[in-house]
Design a protein around this nucleic acid. Structure first.
Lengths: 112, 112
DNA sequence: AAATATACATAAGAATTTTAGGTATTAATT
DNA sequence: AATTAATACCTAAAATTCTTATGTATATTT
């Protein structure tokens, strides 16, 4: 796990990118996907995730669909066309940011 | 300029790295150095910078030396040995974080 | 003479996240 | 069979960090 301050500001970008690649995902699924893909180094906390999802929905960036699985609810989120554009912009901005930080901090990134 | 949320959490790392490379620097100098090195893409705001410098000093990570230049004060900051170790850890952590984010977001970093 | 740059600082407010709690079903373990 | 862990949603107080706004003062440029 990274020190929490590092991850700040990347939550929206992560959510939008994953929802650009997957037709639809639900909250818990997002937490597991990120945990798996990062070897546990990044773990989305529910207290940050759910309010952010709700906000993105309120802004029309995501739409939802509630599905019953057994006796349990699952709230699927899907990205809208406008949201897809924002996702792309956010990812591009983050890429640029990384390049800038590599220069600024004189990093030798281990691009395994 | 990047959207402010991206830069969050990197301020300490930037300060400590620059002070690891330079014997001593003062606040305003840090803002200019970062602005120059990033082509204006990252601009440290004083409202964030000064309180952070004060906190780092209070934690014994930085030491200060006030110098008179003409009739104006300049407060130089220098990193302590312990601070140097923290700086190194922070830079390593950020490097690792970048690698993780590149994987997670499937980025093609333009390492120009 | 006025505007910009240098140089420090604080403080209210905004934004984002952590921490801590709550509810409930399903699967795995003891 | 009972307990624990995993799945699945949610909210709210508190903490953290940053922005915005403001203040003071000197030096330089226009």
């Amino acid at each position: 796990m990274y020190s929490s301050e590092l991850i700040k500001g990347t939550l929206k970008t992560i959510i939008l990118k994953l929802l650009s690649e997957n037709e639809r995902m639900y909250g818990y699924e997002l937490t597991q996907k990120v945990k798996d893909m990062t070897g546990g180094k990044i773990q989305l906390t529910e207290g940050a995730l759910y309010p952010t999802l709700h906000a993105l929905e309120a802004q029309g960036i995501l739409t939802t669909e509630v599905v019953n699985v057994g006796n349990r609810l699952r709230k699927y989120y899907a990205i809208t066309p406008g949201g897809r554009k924002i996702a792309s912009e956010k990812v591009n901005e983050f890429t640029d940011f990384i390049a800038t930080m590599i220069t600024l901090l004189d990093l030798k990134p281990n691009l395994g």
